[in-house]
Structures are given as structure tokens and as C-alpha cells.
Write a protein that binds this DNA or RNA. Structure first.
Length: 271
DNA sequence: CATACGTCCTGCCAGC
DNA sequence: TGCTGGCAGGACGTAT
């Protein structure tokens, strides 16, 4: 899916366009996107509600209404599109929202791994509290990263992707951050020294910030709310570059499988 | 509790 | 050309 930079790009784009708008229509095309929530109740709760703010927590888009939170997780292929009069209908609509100014907000999802859920602010706060720390928050320090990692026997690659410790990092940015930190993805999380944890801390923050600056990575599916791809794919150093030359040493980038997911790294540069 | 793995779903692409 | 298998930005449930 969209990882933190892609979700952040979407949220920043809609955060100044949606507040003040009222939902006047809800069309649930694929009820499975709501889990077991009845589509009729979902629509009824949202119709007439005014968007007050849009924010991000981990890889979730949080649309804030008075006394209600619509939380959207994009899964692998989800898109949140803002459509005007002339815009074509999405090819894989999941849920369509009509706004009081005539625009439409469309949740589009080819694989339908995404989810839309409604919570009271209190229940959402409880769920959000169970997620790990935001890597771009000041509380995310080299010491905290080292401490959190020091008790885990899983590989550092898998550890980075676990949303219970540090949020927002997925399959692309975990490989990218480990390359930048020159750490072998096969190492266990607990094996990192304080100085390696510090390098990884810096690498995570830098790669996420740069990716946000370039509006995210589009390999195939990711689009911003206007339907445009992100610009960071060309700046990836290892992800999806198996067999190509490492930008640092020139040796070929390797692809391995960890936890059922592809990992890309340089055997020479990453120890 | 922590860890490992299968599952949800559709589309695309390489290889035969 | 047409088929098949493998693979794809995530996260949850279950088994051990």
C-alpha cells in the first residue's frame, strides 16, 4: 500500500479542501470494504455530517466529523479521489460520497484490501493508542528506536514494518531505510548497536521526509486525490532494483524474501 | 506473550 | 496468441 509518505500526501491535499463540506450522499458499492458494518447504517451515520478536519495516524486517513471519525486504510491499492463535474468515474469504485458542493469523494480499490470504518472519537483514540510511535514526531529518538528494537528477535526488516512499534513504514521504505543506514536486513532487531540504531533512525526520517517532498512512490497503483502519480519512484535506491548496480559500490542489488515479502539490499554495503 | 504463516482480492507480466 | 504461475505499497486471524 501506500505507506506513510503516500498517505501523508493524500491527507495534506484534502485537508484544505474538505473541511466545511457536508456529506449529502453515500453509495457503498462494495460492502466488504466496511468489514461487518451494515452499509445502511454506515451511510445513515455520515449523511448530513460536516467534515471538520482530515488527519493521518500511521497509514490511516482520519476524516473527522463532530462526534465521529471515518478511518480509511488504503490497503495495497486504495485511492481516495476528489472528483469534479468533468472527472471520469473510477474504474473500481468501492464507496462514493457526494458532497454539498457537487464534488464527489471516491474510495477506489482494485484489490479491496482497504477498509473504511466509523468510530466514536473515544474508541478511535483507544485504537490509535495501540499503534506505535510516529517516526516524524519529536518523541521518536535514536535511543527509543534502540530500546524498542532491543527486545525483538525478528529481523530488522520485518521489525520496521510492524505497526505496533514504529508506524508508517512498509515494504518499500523499510528496504530503502536499511540501505541508507548500511544495515543488513537479515540482522535481528535486537542485534543493532546504539550507533546502528542511530543511523537507522536518521535514515528512516530522511527517506520518509524526502518521499513526502516528492509526493510519494508510484510503482503501479498509487495516486494522489487528483489522480496523479507520486514522484519518488525514480529516487528509490534499492527497491525493485534487483540485479542493477548499487549506487554506492556498483555491485548488483539482491532480492530476498523475508516474511513472504521481497527485500532488496546490497550485500557489500549493508552489514 | 512473541513469532510465523496463510488469507483476503484483482491485475499484470514473464515465460512457455 | 493464449494460458499459467508468480508477484504486488497491508494487516488481520490463527496456530504454535
Amino acid at each position: 500500500m501506500p505507506e506513510l509518505p503516500e498517505v501523508e500526501t493524500i491527507v495534506r491535499d484534502v485537508a484544505h479542501r474538505l473541511p466545511g463540506r457536508v456529506i449529502v450522499g453515500v453509495d457503498v458499492v462494495h460492502p466488504d470494504l466496511l468489514d461487518d458494518h451494515p452499509p445502511v447504517a454506515f451511510a445513515a451515520a455520515l449523511i448530513g455530517a460536516t467534515v471538520r478536519a482530515v488527519s493521518r495516524r500511521a497509514k490511516n486517513i482520519v476524516v473527522e466529523f463532530d462526534g465521529l471519525r471515518l478511518v480509511i486504510n488504503l490497503g495495497m491499492t486504495g485511492r481516495l479521489l476528489v472528483l469534479g463535474d468533468g472527472d471520469a468515474a473510477p474504474s473500481h469504485p468501492g464507496v462514493r460520497f457526494t458532497l454539498d458542493d457537487g464534488r464527489r469523494l471516491a474510495y477506489h480499490d482494485v484489490r479491496r484490501f482497504g477498509r473504511l470504518a466509523l468510530y466514536t472519537p473515544e474508541v478511535w483514540a483507544d485504537r490509535a493508542a495501540k499503534l506505535g510511535i510516529e517516526p516524524l514526531d519529536p518523541g521518536f529518538t535514536p535511543g527509543l528506536l534502540h530500546e524498542l528494537a532491543s527486545s525483538s528477535r525478528v529481523t530488522i526488516k520485518s521489525w520496521l514494518m510492524d505497526q505496533r512499534r514504529v508506524v508508517g513504514i512498509g515494504n518499500i521504505y523499510s528496504s530503502e531505510a536499511l540501505f541508507r543506514a548500511r544495515i543488513d536486513p537479515r540482522r535481528t532487531a535486537k542485534s543493532l548497536t546504539p550507533s546502528e540504531a542511530s543511523r537507522l533512525h536518521t535514515a528512516v526520517i530522511e527517506v520518509l521526509r524526502e518521499a513526502i517532498e516528492f509526493r510519494g512512490t508510484t510503482l503501479l497503483d498509487y495516486r494522489d486525490p487528483d489522480g496523479n502519480p507520486g514522484g519518488f519512484a525514480g529516487r528509490l535506491l534499492v527497491y525493485d532494483r534487483a540485479g542493477r548496480a548499487c549506487v554506492r559500490c556498483g555491485r548488483p542489488i539482491h532480492r530476498i524474501v523475508q516474511g513472504g515479502r521481497s527485500t532488496y539490499f546490497c550485500r557489500r554495503c549493508q552489514r
